[in-house]
Computed example of a mutant assay.
Amino acid sequence: MNLLQIEYSDELKNDIESLKSDLAEIKLNLQPKEPTKYLGRKEVAEMLDVNISTVHNWTARGILTALQIGGRIYYRKKNVEAALIELKK
């Protein structure tokens, strides 16, 4: 093997690694997204084991973010879960 073949081989290896990385990213982006789950006030209260008035108070204080359509109030499940704060020991 001469010097030109070694350089070409290294360049080819780098290109292959780059393609592998690009394909992995594309594959990740093609994964089906989980649909957004919406919860009513009662469902949020049950989920957090609190009263509906507590859910209302947390919404008024900005702890929970509510969505409205017509006269109905909904919460994104992922936002409710994100509002929970992990306690440090």
Rank of each mutant, 00 (worst) to 15 (best):
A83C: 13
I26G: 00
E7Y: 13
R41H: 02
A83V: 10
P32W: 07
E7I: 05
I69A: 02
A45Y: 14
T54W: 09
T59H: 01
E25R: 14
H56W: 06
I52G: 03
I69H: 15
K88F: 02
I63V: 10
E46N: 12
K27E: 15
I63Y: 08
L48D: 10
Y8W: 05
Y38D: 03
R72Q: 15
M1R: 09
I63S: 00
L84C: 06
N2I: 14
Y38L: 14
E11M: 06
I26F: 05
G71N: 12
L67A: 08
A24E: 15
Y75E: 00
Y38G: 01
L19A: 10
E81M: 15
L3Y: 09
L28H: 10
E34D: 09
T54I: 07
I16F: 07
P35S: 09
N29T: 05
I26P: 00
E17D: 10
T59A: 07
L23C: 11
I69L: 08
K77C: 04
N79R: 06
I6C: 03
Q31E: 12
K78V: 12
Y75T: 01
G40T: 15
R76A: 01
V55I: 12
Q68P: 01
K13N: 07
Q31T: 10
I26M: 11
L67T: 15
L23R: 13
N14F: 06
I73A: 01
N29L: 14
V50I: 14
T65E: 14
L64E: 00
K20I: 09
